[in-house]
Design a protein around this nucleic acid. Structure first.
Lengths: 140, 140
DNA sequence: CTGACTGCAAACGTTTTGCACGGTA
DNA sequence: TACCGTGCAAAACGTTTGCAGTCAG
């Protein structure tokens, strides 16, 4: 998916330059905090305002184009909406890596919930630890 | 566990009145945001300051006595540290309910990670949906 | 052309800090 | 008693808002 204009229009949003920029850096970098998005975009387009990023992130989360990833001890990050997956969060560098969701886990969670009177809409699995790069850094 | 004084001392923290109050309301209510804790405690002890709650929550999270529960679209909540479990988050009322962790899920996640060079320290599973009470409210 | 979107700057709420005082061990 | 912890008020920070001008459709 690189057609951000269409993605936006499908969701009832005008395809502005600013929005496409946000989607672009999110796709490039995976998971970003608000100010990481801001810093990245303003390198190239210094006139973009932080307020615009806030307004659009809120809007695109509402429309389901973008998803919030809340993380213990850090500010929330945001990513493009895609199939369910697991987040590996490095507590050293703060980076987040995606892992495809495991089918067994999915099934177990769904059946667990079926016993409850709980309408399940969204899963969110975060695993916290130390990534390979940080392990090497620490070792050396 | 109702011996908060001992719990605090075991973790190198003085057993002050304020800290024991925080632990008490957390045990009573399960999951609370900072200002919910504040509102609850000041009903009975109006002199307790918000700054003290912030300072102590940060401290007790560092010491592992309390755990942060970050939630999409809401401020983080905090709970007493206990065995791993799953959070059912109601997107209508914001309430969080605990479910015991499922052994199969645990195993699947652990083996998934073993393939990676990732040192796993903490799991966090949030399931978002609508709780029974809110379903009834909506139906009526 | 029109309504939606942007940028700016001000307002707001939340979290953090510094310091003098008070309480735990 | 010594030191850590508290409360207060101010400061810092992140986020939201209002408005006048601009742009996508």
């Amino acid at each position: 998916m690189t057609n951000y204009a269409e993605l936006l229009k499908e969701n009832g949003l005008k395809a502005t330059f600013q929005r496409m920029n946000i989607l672009e850096v999110l796709e490039k970098n995976g998971h970003m905090s608000i100010d990481a998005i801001y810093n990245d975009i303003t390198k190239i387009h210094p006139s973009l305002s932080l307020a615009t990023i806030y307004k659009n992130i809120i809007l695109m989360v509402e429309k389901g184009v973008v998803v919030e990833v809340p993380i213990s001890g850090l500010k929330s990050k945001y990513e493009l909406a895609k199939e369910d997956h697991i987040h590996l969060v490095c507590t050293e560098c703060g980076d987040v890596e995606d892992k495809p969701c495991v089918k067994e886990t999915d099934i177990v969670l769904s059946t667990l919930i079926k016993k409850e009177s709980f309408i399940l809409n969204k899963r969110q699995i975060n695993l916290y630890g130390v990534c390979k790069e940080c392990q090497n850094q620490i070792a050396s």
